[in-house]
């Protein structure tokens, strides 16, 4: 049903640490690899001149001008935030888009999806992509087929993007439990919501890049204030006296 659950028992989601993410795109490929099973995520013209494809996770890179500090490059993974007030769910005419009452994961049932695209329009975060081959909507499942999968070793029972991240920039857990690792990280590091004014109450949280201290002067700075001596010093003084 496309009515949202009043509350969910668990609130499973991700914490993404923008301080440690190095933008290696490993989460993008791990996500694509795991979710390419079954119906998969189709690509179009993958080896041609105009490649395009369905991905559930994209990593942007931003440069940030930081006041009184050196500028920073911030790598920014973007995927479904499994919102509490998920606008993508309520707009769905068929009930294909739904939010699970037990753990809050937002999913699409491909067997009932008509591919109208309205859920993708409703999502402020661009988390949903219509599979051009299959004509149905695809989105992050929080690897629901891994996290409860008893046939996998326990260490693998987390989303593929989290499992693969080489810098530990991605964390998976239950936000309903205040003692969980993700809850403690959010409390300690000031985890925040994306576009909170959109009223979606995202479950996933982002940890801001840490302050990098005061700006170091340019490496060339000592060269800019050379005290000249001898002939050069005389020339410097004489030239300084000339007008213009």
């Amino acid at each position: 049903m496309t009515a949202l659950p009043q509350a969910t028992d668990k609130r499973l989601g991700l914490v993404i640490d923008l301080d440690t993410c190095v933008g290696c795109q490993a989460c993008v490929t791990a996500c694509k690899g795991w979710n390419d099973q079954g119906d998969g995520l189709s690509d179009q013209d993958a080896y041609g001149a105009d490649p395009s494809g369905t991905f559930l996770n994209r990593v942007h890179s931003y440069q940030v001008a930081v006041p009184d500090a050196p500028p920073q490059i911030v790598n920014f993974p973007r995927s479904c935030l499994h919102c509490e007030v998920a606008p993508c769910v309520t707009v769905c005419p068929t009930g294909a888009s739904y939010k699970r009452a037990e753990d809050g994961i937002v999913l699409v049932n491909p067997d009932t999806c008509i591919g109208c695209g309205l859920c993708a329009w409703a999502c402020p975060y661009g988390a949903r992509e219509l599979d051009a081959d299959q004509g149905v909507m695809k989105k992050c499942t929080l690897c629901v087929d891994r996290i409860y999968n008893q046939t996998l070793p326990e260490a693998d029972r987390e989303p593929a993007c989290v499992r693969t991240c080489p810098t530990n920039a991605r964390h998976f857990g239950d936000f309903a439990d205040p003692e969980s690792e993700v809850s403690r990280l959010v409390a300690a590091r000031g985890g925040y919501d994306l576009m909170p004014d959109m009223g979606t109450k995202p479950t996933n949280k982002y940890l801001p890049p840490r302050k990098k201290g005061p700006g170091e002067a340019s490496l060339l700075a000592p060269l800019l204030d050379i005290k000249t001596t001898g002939v050069a010093g005389w020339l410097d003084r004489m030239l300084g006296k000339l007008p213009g």
Partner: peptide, 14 residues
């Protein structure tokens, strides 16, 4: 606000 990076500075696409 979309990236939340306004809390540390002014972002633009790298």
């Amino acid at each position: 606000s979309a990236t939340g990076l306004d809390r540390i500075g002014t972002p633009w696409v790298f």
